[in-house]
Structure formats: structure tokens, C-alpha cells
Amino acid sequence: MAKPRIAVIISSTRKTRFADKPAAWLMEQLKDHPELDFELVDLRDQNLPFFDEPASNLWMPSSDPNAVAWQEKLAGFDGFFFVVAEYNRSITGALKNALDQAYKQWVRKPFAALAYGSMGGARALEHLRLIGIELQMVPLRNAVHIGGSDFFKVFPGGGDAPISEIEENLKPSLKATLEELVWWTKATKAARG
């Protein structure tokens, strides 16, 4: 039996983004997971227009081929793990747009997060969880946060150290997040089936 599939979605599309560093670390931690398969999905590669459909795809099919391709990609996943950048106390515009480009494909699927910023991306993740609730997703309680001195140690504008130098601080929350993600992925996949 195939393992449930989880998309690890990089939410920032800026050329100078920090996201690649924590995303690479996260994918290394997830590569041999015994119960879930993880695939990196970069919003840079999706070529999504700004949302301009007459309505959400909950109510009518989307007409833009890139939006439809995005929806079809999302449909193949059983859950999501967002790499969340905090921009001005919220999520990136690119992530909000990507969320708005689909609806049915998010419903009744769990999501986890690795959030970062001076405050650990906590405010952005709070917004993402509220959006997820409206999309009928299952936002997990646990998350991985890179904040404070850990963030400034690994951020290019700070110490630019490798994530491995702070990973002992991240691994307990990653373990708890993955345990929760496995449980909710199995539960929601069974219920959707």
C-alpha cells in the first residue's frame, strides 16, 4: 500500500528568500519517513496568476490553465507541510494567492508548518491556520518555529550558519509535529475514502 503523500510547500517566491535553507533541512529530515512520502513543491514553479476567477473552484471550475494545473497537483496530496515566511505579521502574498486558487483540493486535509522570522513566524502561522480553517483544512497544533537568536544565527543577514547548528532546538518540535501529521493524515484519508 502506498504511503500518504504530503506536499512541502515553499511559500516565498522572492529571489533573495531565506526559505531554501530551512526547506532543504526539512526535506533532509523527512527523506526516509516510514509512514509518509514528502514532495517539495515550490510556489516559484507554479506560474500562478493573481486570482481572477468569477468564483472559487468550490462553486465553479477555474478557467486559467495554470490555476487548473495547480488544483490538479494539490489533488494528489493527502496533506501539506508549509514552509512559512512571515512578511509584515502575516503570510506571503504568493501563499495567499496559491491558497485562493483552489478550494476543493484543500478540504479535509491536515497541514503542518515550519515557520520562521524574528518571532518564529508565529503571527504568519496564526493567519495561515485561520485561512486553513476557512478552507476546511485541519491545522495542526504543533509546528516548527525558527525564531529569536536561532533565526538570527542562521539568517543570511545575521550569522548565516547552517541549520544544523540549531537543529537540536528544532528536532523536538519536528518530532511532535510529524507524530500529529501522521495521525491526522491517516484519519482524514480514511474518512475521505
Rank of each mutant, 00 (worst) to 15 (best):
E86D: 14
Y103D: 14
R129Y: 02
N66I: 13
Y116N: 09
P54S: 00
Y103C: 07
Q71G: 06
M119A: 11
K171L: 15
G158C: 10
F111Y: 09
Y116A: 13
W183N: 06
D150G: 00
R141F: 11
K96C: 10
A176D: 14
L140R: 04
E180K: 04
E126D: 14
V68R: 12
A98G: 14
I163L: 15
A124T: 09
L135T: 02
A187Y: 02
K109Y: 11
L170W: 00
D52F: 03
L95R: 08
G159C: 09
V138M: 11
P172C: 00
G117K: 03
G147R: 03
P54T: 00
Y87C: 06
G157Q: 13
D64M: 15
I91G: 05
I91T: 07
P49E: 10
D150T: 01
V83N: 03
G93K: 04
G79W: 02
A85T: 09
M60N: 10
M119F: 04
N169R: 10
E86K: 00
T92P: 15
E167G: 02
F80M: 07
A69E: 08
A55P: 05
E179G: 05
E165T: 12
E134T: 06
L58E: 09
G159I: 03
F81P: 03
E167S: 04
Q136Y: 08
P162Y: 01
L114I: 14
S63D: 14
I146N: 00
M119T: 13
G158V: 14
P162N: 03
K73E: 11
E180F: 03
F152P: 00
G121M: 04
A187L: 15
P54V: 05
W184E: 05
N88Y: 05
S63K: 12
A94W: 13
G147E: 01
H145S: 06
F151R: 06
S90C: 11
P156E: 06
G121W: 00
I146T: 01
E72L: 11
L74M: 13
F81A: 00
L74Y: 06
L130N: 07
N97M: 14
N169W: 02
I131F: 06
L99P: 04
G147K: 11
E168L: 14
H145T: 05
Q71N: 10
S164N: 13
T188M: 12
I133M: 12
L140V: 08
D150E: 12
G148L: 05
N169K: 09
L170F: 01
E179K: 04
N142M: 08
R89N: 14
D160P: 11
L140N: 08
E126A: 02
